[in-house]
Every structure is written in C-alpha cells, then in structure tokens.
Design a protein around this nucleic acid. Structure first.
Lengths: 338, 338
DNA sequence: TTGTAAGCGTTATCAT
DNA sequence: ATGATAACGCTTACAA
C-alpha cells in the first residue's frame, strides 16, 4: 500500500490539514514544521492520491484527444503537437482513436464511461446531429479539430486549405510563369480536395489564365493510381511551362516517377507540385515544391483552446484557421530555385 | 452539476446501495426495482463519477504509454497498435511522449504526479540506473518497449531485428542468387543497425559468401545522405547479381533514385532492398523488397502484457520478441517477382 | 431483496 | 499557525 496523507501526518507529528497545506500552500505553514513534513514526505515516498484529489477538486488535468484512425503523417502530426502543448500546460493527454471512423457514436459512449477528462479535443469525419447531441451531453469543454461546422457554437481549429492552394497557384503563375496548370484532385467528395480545387479556379480567373475542364481530374490520393494515370496522360500534358498541381504529395510523387519512366525531365518538360509537405516531399528528384500543412500546430492549438476555456469558461467561442505555408523546392521549375 | 448516485436513489425511491448494485451486480436486484433505477439513470443522464470510483476500486482502467518523441511511422505505428488493443481490453491510453528523449527523469517525475495509471508501457532510449530506480519507485506494472535490458526483470516486448535481417539475407542469396551484397547501415551506434549488420555477417558466413570489409558502410538513415553517397559509389558497385542492403527504406529509396539518375536499371544493374516496410516502400519504381517491422503489434503486445499483469500480478516475467516479415517486391530482382 | 453505515484520501471551512 | 471535521461520490460489509 502506498503511503497516504495520514501516514505522513503521523510521522511528522502534525494533523493531515498541515500536511495538505505544506503541499498546496506552503506559505501558510511554519518553516520548521514544514521541514518536518517535507522530510516525512520524502522518507515515505508519499504522493497525493490522484483520485481523492480529483474527487475534491473536480479536475484531473487530463485532456482527451479523439481522432479517427487515420494513416499517414496526419495522425502522428496532430498527436505530436497536441502532446507537446498539453505537457507544456501541465496536462496529460488521453488518446482515443476510433477504429471505425464512423462509429463516433460508440466512441463518445466509451468516453463518457470513464469521465476523467477535464476537456476534449475531437476530430470527427462528419458532425451528425447524433454526434452533436452526444457531445453536448458530455458537458465538457470541447474543441473541434479540422472540422468546419458553420452552425455549431464550439471552439474549433481548422486549416485554411483555400489559402494554401491559392498561395501555390499564385506562385506557379506569377513566379514560375506557368502557362497551363493541370489539377489532379483526391476523392471528389473530400472537403480538402474541394477547397483546393476552388482555389485553383479562383486564381486562374484572378490571373486571367484560361480554365479548361479537361485539365481537371479526380483520383484517389494514391501513389499507384497517380502513377498509372500519369503514364497515360503525361505524354499529352508535357510542354514548356506546363505544370501538374497534385492535391497531395503522394500523387505528385507518382507523377514524377512516371515522368522519369517516360524519359521526361521534371520540371523542364513538365513541372509537378504537391500538397502537405510530408516526409516524401524531400525524397523525390527533383525535390517537391509543396504546401506545408501545420498539423502539429493544429493539434497544439486544439489543446490550447481547451485549456483556455478550462481557465475561463466565459470566453467567447473561437474559430481559428491556420495558414499553410508555401515550400518552394525544385519541382516547380521556378527561377529562384535554379 | 452532474447527477450523483444519490440523485438517482432519490428519484427511484431506493437507497444508494441499490443504485450501486443495479450498476455493478444487476443480478442481485429485483427486476422491478432495477427497472425503476435504470429509468432514473436514463432520465438523469447519470454516469458514475470516475474519481470516486477510482478511489474505492483503486484503479482507473487507464494505461500510460510513454515514448520518446520520434518521427516517422515508428511513432504512429506503436501508438496505433497500443490504442487499438487498449480499447479492445476496455482500457484508455494516456499518452506521454518525452520532448527531450534523454529527459526520462523529468518524464517519470511528471508521470508520478498524476498517478492515475494502472500500469505503464514505456520505451526509453537507454535504461540507466537512475531511470530504473525511478520506474521501480512507481510501484506500477511496467513493460519495456523495444528495449533489451538483460539485467532487468521487467516484462518487455522487442522486435527480433536479427531474424528479420537474416530472412532478407537468405532471400537475397538463396532465391535471388545475389553474388555480392553491400551493407549500408544507419548510425554506427544504433542498436537496430548493429543487429542487422550482425545478421548480414552471419548469413554471409553461413552461405559461404565472402565477406569484404569495403562492402560495409555506415550512414545516417537519411535519404539525402544515401542519395549523395550512392551517386559516388554506385558506378563501382553495379554488376550482375549485385545488391545493396540498406538498413532502412529511406536510404534504399535514395539508392534507387540515384541509380536512375545514373541511368542504371534496378534491379538488373544493381538490386536494392530496404528495411521497415514504411509507406514509401510501395512508392518507388521498382517497388522495394523490404522487411516489415510489426510496430503496431509491438504496441498492442505491450498493452496486452500490462493488462495481463494487472489481472494476475503473480505472472512470471515475460520477454516477447516479435518476428519481422520478409516482403518481396521487385527491387531485389528475385525470379519469383518477374 | 434492500437499507445502513463505514471508509477510501483528499481539500476546505471553521475553530482554536 | 494548526487541528477538527465535514464534505466529495462511490463500493461494500453487515443488518434487517
């Protein structure tokens, strides 16, 4: 059995209140007794029981992080950022990633069973009424990650996909002097892909570059699919100042490898740019020009929002949009990189 | 304020013990009263207070997962596996990755502050006496991840690097009929790299393939370094049935890209294989033959060991070595893949 | 089958 | 400056 507060009190010849005080408000206790108590604490290897403490204080200093079970750096990026910030702020992180991304129902249920958390940062594929209700029932400070819910009144943090894609498009047109840009999106229903495509159209219009329907294609974010597709189309797409804007690095990588297989030189015969700035962006020849998506920062911000609300529940609802950053390497063929 | 057990008791016209029983041993309570209580619970949206519960039961159903702040799929692989298994077993995961990999001191300290965990799965770069002591002081079931500590008596789960590298070497020599194999390791002090190198020597000897000191090199696990190195050496290394065995996929990828840049064909002019089976292994042309390292399984096993010991503290100490699996694709030039 | 009451280890409010 | 003592919400003998 671990030592309890009364063991310490006994050993130091004081009451338990004095022990509690030495721990929580040392200023209120006489220097000599304080030393005696501290000695006893040390000798017994005493540490306050977290449950009893939580019972009184009604808080655990633990924050739940709920994610769909994603693959790729998305997952680890958010976790890393969240974990770091949580520790900086003196909190621990309770991780809970859903096996089935759509079973947020069961997920929220399992959360409320062991209601240790002071607050929750959650990312869900889709916010249904059902989930909305379940979350509300938790009666906990809540922040939504990477989910735009116009109607809701929760704190949230998202990534400004539109701004990132716009920055890339402007770079391509204004700096690289691209004459024709092919857009290769991900799944057609994917919100991020849609946002990136919107920016594509927008900047095309803004700069007076002609838009052609046949220059837009939707694949599935996968390397192999992109590679096969590229082998087919690149021979027709190649050309001076022509560029492929892929909606993620993986597809961009597929295009580059396919270009090589077709004896095309990147970026001279065809330029290729990606999105996300994942690990592989530095692992292609030429290295990929892409858009860095601040995943860790999104995780960190989510935790921060939870903590702030914990400190002050009256805070107004906040909605933070993180701006991605253009990363120019060699695959876009911009003059600067040469 | 959330409803408490006495609110439910009041509403259902029973004592709090009956409520408690309805929740924990429904069999012991009359069907009619049980229904009344359950109705009250539903109406009030009641959920037992986790702190009070923990205080009585002396357990939280939470397991700590302590990792160094690694990058790459290593990190997320372990977390994913651990999280999944924890939930299957009815536990939650408290994640805690150290910012500074060597500050396990501060880390363990922060752990014991909020001693909520029933047990801990921990991965440390190096188990020093100091850490060993700190861990022992926690008085918690403990399992070491990916750490071979001959002297210690903790449960542990590791990956059998040696077996994985041996399988690769045997495949290269026996199936691909490699005549000369170059070994490109990671950091010279890295335990994994050392284990892989040992297997390299061993199988060379076992199969009577000559060992040459100049065929062994140590880099830093990085793509760029490997690429630059390969540009230098590949012209001398190329040859029929020659193969580069890189100690991770990233370096292998560097070699393949360099080979392409040098107009060499993989695997015909030079074969290349990797280790880890990360995402990029499927993203090279040809696809990488490599060794799949069961990261998720390691995470899951660690959690499982903790839980088993929680159930039965008298269990003998266990040491589990997970076997990696050979994944043959096209880069090794083995006849089967053609 | 149900109720009473003790106790888990804290913190907080009073007195002293 | 310190000590009693009452919560906090729950489980669990023990009684009825």
């Amino acid at each position: 059995m671990a030592a309890s507060i009364s063991d310490v009190a006994l050993r130091a010849n004081v009451s338990i209140s004095t022990v509690s005080r030495t721990i929580n408000r040392p200023a209120l206790v006489n220097a000599q007794t304080r030393e005696r108590v501290e000695a006893a604490i040390r000798e017994l290897g005493y540490h306050p029981n977290a449950f009893a403490r939580g019972l009184m204080l009604r808080k655990s200093e633990m924050i739940g992080l709920v994610l769909p079970d994603m693959h790729g750096e998305f997952y680890s990026g958010i976790i890393r950022g969240a974990n770091l910030r949580a520790h900086e702020l003196g909190y621990s992180l309770v991780l809970s990633s859903a096996h089935d991304p759509l079973d947020t129902r069961g997920l929220v249920g399992s959360l409320r069973q062991r209601q240790f958390m002071d607050g929750i940062a959650i990312m869900v594929a889709e916010v249904t009424d059902h989930i909305e209700q379940a979350l509300a029932d938790l009666h906990l400070p809540l922040v939504l990650i990477d989910t735009d819910v116009p109607g809701t009144s929760h704190d949230s943090v998202v990534i400004d996909q539109r701004a990132g894609a716009s920055a890339m498009m402007r770079h391509l047109i204004n700096t690289c002097h691209a004459k024709r840009i092919f857009f290769v999106g991900g799944w057609e229903t994917n919100m991020d892909s849609i946002a990136r495509f919107k920016a594509y159209q927008e900047i095309l219009a803004e700069t007076g570059t002609p838009f052609r329907n046949e220059d837009v294609h939707h694949l599935d974010y996968d390397y192999d699919t992109a590679y096969a597709f590229a082998i087919q189309h690149l021979p027709n797409w190649k050309g001076e100042k022509h560029c492929v804007f892929a909606a993620n690095d993986e597809m961009a990588c597929g295009f580059i490898d396919a270009a090589h297989a077709l004896q095309l030189r990147v970026p001279r015969d065809i330029a290729v740019v990606g999105f996300d700035d994942t690990r592989i962006a530095r692992m292609t020849r030429p290295q990929l020009t892409t858009v860095r998506v601040p995943l860790a920062e999104m995780g960190a911000t989510a935790i921060e929002l939870v903590c702030q609300r914990l400190d002050d529940p009256t805070l107004p609802k906040r909605h933070i949009a993180l701006r991605p950053e253009l990363v120019t390497r060699q695959s876009c063929g911009c003059p600067k990189a040469h």
